[in-house]
Design a protein around this nucleic acid. Structure first.
Lengths: 158, 158
DNA sequence: ATAAGTGCAAATCATTTGCAATGTC
DNA sequence: GACATTGCAAATGATTTGCACTTAT
C-alpha cells in the first residue's frame, strides 16, 4: 500500500514532465526513484550522493535542475530552516498542510497536521485583508526525555 | 513614548556588549542607532546602505559581524523567508511571539500576534513529547484588494 | 531532425574570515 | 598596553549558468 502510493506519486511527476514537454531521462528516472522511495527529508547534497550510488554519472547540475521541477509539481516541498542549504520533503502531497517541529538537540524533524491552526490562519488572514495561500509553521523544541534523562531519544532515529 | 522605548532597547544592547567585554565603537553606535530607530524589517545589505549614509567608513564586514551580536542579545530577530538573504526584525523584544504574513505580490511583511496559536503550539509540543522553545509562523498571502482591483495597497507603503 | 538534457567548469552571490592596522578600555 | 575591532580583499559554500556535446521524442 505504501509502495503503491509512492508509485502513483512517481507517475504523477512523470505526467507533470510530459505535460510540460520535458523529457524522461535516465538521470531523472534515478532521481525520481530516490526521492519518492524515501520518507526522509533531504538536501540537494544528500540527493546527489544517493543518486551517484546508483549511477556515478549523475551530476550536481542535474540534481539542482531537477529540484525546481519537483517543487513546481507540488509533489515535493522546499523548506528553509535557516541553514545555508535547503531541505526537501517528499511527503508533501500526502499532507499538504503539515507543519514541522525541529528538535534543537538532534535536528530530528517531526511533522504534524493541525486543522485548528489551519483555520486560525485563515481567520487571521481574513482579518488582515489577505487570502492565505500557504503557511509554514516551525517549532523549535527540546524533547522532554532529554531534559529528564540527559539522553535524546531521537538521536538514534535521525 | 515610542522614542523612549527605543532608547531603552539601545541601552539594553549596550549593556549586553559591556557584559561581554565588547567595545562600543563608532561603527557599532551607528548601526545600533539605525537598527533601533527603524520599525522596518531589513536585510544586511539595507543596513549597510543606511549605515554608509551616515558614515561612509562602515564596512560590510562590520555589519555582518554586528548582526550576530544583535540576534544573540535577543533584541533583534533573524528571519528566513526562503530568499537567499536573511531579514532582520528590530521589533522583536516588544512582541517576542509575533508571526508574519508576507504578501506574495509586494513582499510587504505584516506582523501579528495570536495567543490562540501560541497555546495550540504548546499543546502540540506536549502531545509530541517536546517543550517548545520558539516558533515561526509564516503565511504567504495575496491581499484581497489586489484581487479585486488589480492594485496592491501595500505597494506604496513598502 | 529538433529541441531538451547532460556534465563540466566557471560564475554568482550572500556571508565569512585572515590579516595588518587602528581604536577602546 | 592589551586586546577587541576595523576595512580590505580573499575565501567559502550553496546554487546557478554558459557551452558544446548527447539523447529523447
Amino acid at each position: 500500500m505504501r509502495t503503491e502510493a509512492r508509485e502513483e506519486t512517481k507517475r504523477k511527476f512523470i505526467d507533470f514532465l510530459e505535460e510540460k514537454n520535458l523529457r524522461i531521462t535516465d538521470q531523472r528516472r534515478i532521481i525520481i526513484d530516490i526521492v519518492f522511495d524515501t520518507e526522509e527529508h533531504f538536501t540537494a547534497d544528500q540527493l546527489l550522493e544517493w543518486a551517484r550510488q546508483r549511477d556515478r554519472s549523475v551530476s550536481r547540475a542535474t540534481v539542482y535542475r531537477t529540484l525546481p521541477l519537483l517543487t513546481e509539481s507540488n509533489l515535493v516541498h522546499e523548506m528553509d530552516f535557516g541553514k545555508p542549504y535547503k531541505f526537501y520533503d517528499p511527503n508533501y502531497s500526502d499532507h499538504p498542510n503539515h507543519n514541522h517541529l525541529i528538535c534543537e538537540n538532534c535536528e530530528k524533524i517531526v511533522e504534524f497536521d493541525s486543522e485548528q491552526i489551519d483555520s486560525i490562519e485563515n481567520e487571521i488572514g481574513q482579518k488582515l485583508g489577505f487570502t492565505v495561500k500557504s503557511q509554514k509553521l516551525q517549532l523549535s523544541a527540546t524533547c522532554d526525555k532529554l531534559k529528564k534523562s540527559g539522553v535524546c531519544d531521537n538521536k538514534a532515529s535521525n
